[in-house]
Amino acid sequence: MFLLSTTLALYYLGSLVNAQSSNENAISIAAIEAHFTGAGLVPSLLSSFDPSALITVTFPGVGAISPGQSLTKDRGTDPRNLLVPANSSVTLQGNYTLVMADADVVGADESVGQTRHWLVNGVTLTGSSPLNVSTTGGVAVTEYAGPAPPAGSGAHRYVILLLPQPSSFSPPANLSQPNVGVSVFHLTDYISTSHLGVPVAGMYFDVEQGTATATPSPTSPVVSSTLKPAASGSSSASSSASSSKSSSSNAAIRSGHSVLAIPVAVFSLLASYICL
C-alpha cells in the first residue's frame, strides 16, 4: 500500500511540475511578445510577432540577457549559448535561419531597411533540454558583427530572430553564399522572398553610444500581470493559435497559487506514509 501510494504521489507531483513549467513558458512567451510590441518592433519592423518558443541569448561577462536589456558596445560581441528551452507542446525540428538586424531607434522609419549584423542559414537545434541553436553546419552568409550604432544616435534595438526554413526556402542570390559583409537589407523582404516561416522565437537588446541628440518616441513598459491576449491574426489558424496561447497564459496566472499549493499537499501525504 505504501509503495503504491508513494508511486502515485510522485507521478502526480511530476505531472504538476510539467504543467507548471508549461504555464511558465506560456507566460514568458506572452511577455516577450508584449516586449516586442512595447518597444515598437511590432508593427514597425514586423507586422506581427507570435512566437511559439523562447530563445536565451548569453553574452560573455553579461550572462543571459532580458528583453530590451541595455548593453555597452563591447558587451554585445560574441553571443554564446543560444538555447531554446524544450517545450513538449511545440515540435522544433528541421533547419532554421538565424538573423540579427539593427532596427535603429524607437520610431525609426523601417522602410529604409535595417543593418544586417548576422545571417546564418541551415541552423539546427541539437540536444534535448534545452535545445542548442547550432550554427556549425549552417551557411554563415554574414558572420556575427557586434553592434556599432553611431555616437549620439540614440539606443539602437538589435533584434535576433529564429525562423523555420520550409522545403520551399530559397534565399536571394546575393544572400545565399557565405562571407557577405555587413550591409543594409530589408528584413521583411528577405523573409518573404526566401519563403521563410514566421519567427518561432526572438530576443532584442539595446546599445547606445554617447548621448542621444534627439528624443525617441516613448515605449510602453511590460507588466506581466496585465498581459492581454494577442490580437487576432489575418488567418483563422493564427487566430486559433493566438487564442490558445493566451488562454494558457491567463489560466497560468489565475491558477498560480493553487498549482503551487498542491505539491505541498502531496509532500505532506508522502511524509505521513514515511512516518508509519
Rank of each mutant, 00 (worst) to 15 (best):
S167Q: 12
V159E: 06
G152A: 02
A151S: 14
L163F: 01
V141E: 00
N132A: 15
A148W: 06
A151H: 03
Y158C: 06
Y158Q: 07
V139G: 05
S167P: 00
Y144M: 09
G138L: 03
V159F: 08
S129E: 15
S168P: 01
S129F: 14
P171D: 03
V133T: 09
S167R: 12
S153E: 09
Y144T: 07
S170D: 03
N132Q: 15
S134E: 14
L161F: 05
A155T: 07
Q165C: 11
P166M: 07
V159S: 06
A155R: 12
P130D: 09
R157I: 10
S129T: 15
S134Q: 13
S129G: 11
I160D: 08
A145M: 12
G138Y: 04
A140T: 09
R157F: 12
P171I: 00
S168Q: 05
R157E: 13
V133N: 09
G146A: 13
P166F: 05
P150C: 03
P171K: 01
Q165I: 06
I160W: 14
G146T: 08
P164C: 10
A155M: 05
L131Q: 11
R157N: 14
E143N: 15
S153L: 04
L131G: 03
P147V: 06
A155Q: 11
A173E: 06
P147T: 07
Y144A: 07
E143T: 15
E143S: 15
L161E: 09
A155L: 05
H156R: 11
R157T: 11
L162W: 00
G137T: 05
S129W: 14
P172D: 03
L162P: 02
L131I: 12
V141D: 02
P164V: 07
Y158F: 15
T135I: 15
E143M: 13
V141N: 00
T135Y: 13
A145H: 12
T135G: 14
S170C: 04
A151I: 09
L161H: 04
V159Q: 04
S134R: 11
S168A: 10
E143W: 10
L161N: 07
P172H: 00
G146S: 11
A155P: 10
Y144H: 06
A155N: 12
T135P: 11
A151L: 09
A145I: 13
G137R: 03
L163S: 02
F169N: 11
A151P: 10
G137L: 09
Y144I: 05
S168C: 05
T142M: 02
S153W: 03
A155D: 13
P130Y: 11
S167W: 06
I160Q: 10
P130S: 12
P130R: 10
A148L: 12
